[in-house]
């Protein structure tokens, strides 16, 4: 008994994250229902998006509601390059990412000098401009009629017949993004961002390059969001401004990070795995009979979380529930450090 608890204390923390990874890796072998695989695939995508948003929104403390612009730029760039020049979406996603970074640079010039609601409003306006332009310049984007991406299955075209392929690719993408976020959080940039988030003046007076840090976070965030946009386009095979550029996409990213927990890399994972399946499920169950009820519930949940658990569900969960579990295993020390970290 004593031995096993020792092993848990020693290696438990490092091994615990591997458990869900292994489970998720094996899942398609157990679940053949395509609909559930679809929900998981979407969840991976949204976790990645929430995490990407978290880099600037959480770590940097800059509440952007304009990330749909980057998402849409990524989706449109790779799709257009593929449709017109046959360029593989694997390369197209980098083109989209770079274009999104340029867009991020443009909006950062005014936006990052602003704080609080002003920053938020300028990102909203920016995303709206991108959406309206995509809608209007129909020679390029086909406007709201949307782009249909030709379906030629194959690895190079990032197009597959089986759901499982998407499942694994998006799973890998999500892991990559999560690792990125973990590294950022524990890097110099992460510490700078945390300092800026807490008190920008104080950070600057200590020599933290606040604008540079925020800009870096913004660019990284935009890049990842755009790559996710490519995956989304290649998954749906159809994009239009209404699907990839509306404010709802931006809000969803914020929701996932905020409900899960801001400014910690685990937050969006938690948030994504709750919000996405919950949304799909509520719509499937309530959509026909009580139209709109699922969003009512969403609204209430969001308000309750923000009011009563403002730090987000993940920190709260580890504090309230995790404490008990860990205490049972006699890992009191771990609990303390966890709390300190939060």
């Amino acid at each position: 008994m004593r031995n096993s608890s020792n092993i848990l204390t020693k290696h438990g923390n490092k091994l615990i994250p591997l458990v869900p990874v292994v489970i998720l890796l094996l899942l398609p072998l157990l679940i053949h229902n395509q609909y559930y695989l679809h929900i998981f695939t979407l969840t991976f995508l949204w976790v990645a998006l929430g995490s990407a948003w978290n880099i600037i929104g959480g770590f940097g403390g800059q509440l952007s509601i304009g990330h749909a612009a980057f998402f849409g730029i990524g989706a449109y760039t790779s799709s257009l390059l593929y449709i017109h020049f046959g360029l593989s979406p694997w390369l197209g996603m980098f083109a989209g990412g770079i274009l999104a970074m340029i867009a991020a640079l443009i909006i950062s010039w005014p936006a990052l000098r602003l704080r609080g609601p002003f920053f938020t409003l300028s990102t909203i306006a920016f995303a709206e401009v991108v959406r309206l332009l995509a809608n209007h310049y129909r020679e390029l984007t086909k406007g709201s009629i949307g782009l249909s991406i030709p379906f030629n299955p194959g690895f190079v075209n990032l197009a597959f017949r089986s759901r499982e392929s998407y499942y694994y690719f998006l799973f890998a993408f999500m892991l990559l993004v999560i690792i990125c976020c973990y590294l950022i959080q524990n890097s110099k940039l992460g510490y700078y961002l945390a300092a800026v988030r807490e008190d920008e003046e104080a950070a600057e007076s200590l020599g933290v390059p606040s604008t540079f840090s925020k800009l870096m976070a913004m660019l990284l965030s935009a890049f990842i969001t755009a790559v996710a946009g490519t995956f989304y386009a290649q998954y749906l095979f159809y994009i239009d401004p209404h699907t990839v550029l509306p404010i709802d996409v931006s809000i969803q990213m914020v929701l996932i990070a905020a409900i899960g927990g801001l400014a910690i890399w685990q937050g969006p994972i938690f948030g994504g795995f709750i919000v996405t399946p919950l949304g799909e499920f509520l719509r499937a169950q309530l959509g026909g009979a009580f139209r709109g009820l699922h969003f009512v519930i969403f609204g209430v949940v969001l308000m309750l979380v923000v009011i009563f658990i403002p730090e987000g569900l993940y920190p709260w969960f580890t504090r309230i529930i995790g404490k008990r579990i860990l205490v049972k295993f006699g890992a009191k020390n771990e609990v303390k450090t966890e709390e300190g970290g939060v």
């Binding site: 509440l63 609601p117 009512v296 969001l302």
Partner: peptide, 13 residues
């Protein structure tokens, strides 16, 4: 911002 976004969802629906 988040709490009023929640309110928005709620009232609209």
């Amino acid at each position: 911002i988040l709490v009023t976004v929640g309110l928005m969802f709620f009232f609209q629906n």
